[in-house]
Amino acid sequence: MRRAALALLLAPLIALAAAAQPQSGFELMAPETQAMQRDDTANPGMLWVQEGEALWQQSGCAGCHGDAAASMRGAAARYPVYDEARAGPIDLAGRINQCRVERQGAPALALEGEPLLALGSFVAHQSRGLPVAPPADPRLAPARAQGEALFRERRGQLNLSCAQCHDDNAGRRLAGSPIPQGHPNGYPLYRLEWQGMGSLQRRLRNCMAGVRSEPFAYGAPEYIAIETFLMSRAAGLLLETPAVRP
């Protein structure tokens, strides 16, 4: 009886502690999907990582960056970072294209095209297992604030904000599927629903269309602001690229 009363008293505290700790969407997946992500020979995202490694070699990235396993380790855990040229945050895909255009004199790769997804997956994969560690750069604060405002803004014909599902109702079931907290710690990732690889921006567009709102164009600063906010919200979670999600 006393133990039950104690448990009742402690339950809200335990719940609070759990809420303070970000939880990867991985934890909510079916065991088969978790196993698919864990096993590199079964994880379809590894095909993009391998393709990205080939592109890294062919495109001459190694000429400056050397061994990606050393030079790229930690990059995906930090990004988006502040970029002088943009006078704002730049995401990893944006940096890859900036590097191509300005340093290699090569054309930018199409956003969400397979080559950029492959290179992005290869680079992000070098940070797998590292904790999300957004830089404490005060120049990122305006973008982070803008991203949070967008996260909390109700939109679309269904008039829902990201926060209403991914903060207020995370863990509950939307049509039978558990709602994750919405952390960006596995991108680019292989989504079973897509039967393919996609970026965080593609995922954000899915939700925006889901609430019947007009998504921003790929590469829009709004997405990078949202990513900047989401990375600070996910601080400490381990990078999983290439993650697998339902």
Binding site: R155, G156, Q157, L158, N159
Partner: peptide, 23 residues
């Protein structure tokens, strides 16, 4: 979080296919 099923104003960034239409 319940959408308003018969209301089309006071909404934000509604997709073109849904603008001016109630659910």
């Amino acid at each position: 979080i319940m959408p308003s099923y018969y209301r089309s104003e006071g909404l934000h960034q509604v997709g073109p296919a849904w603008q001016g239409r109630t659910i």
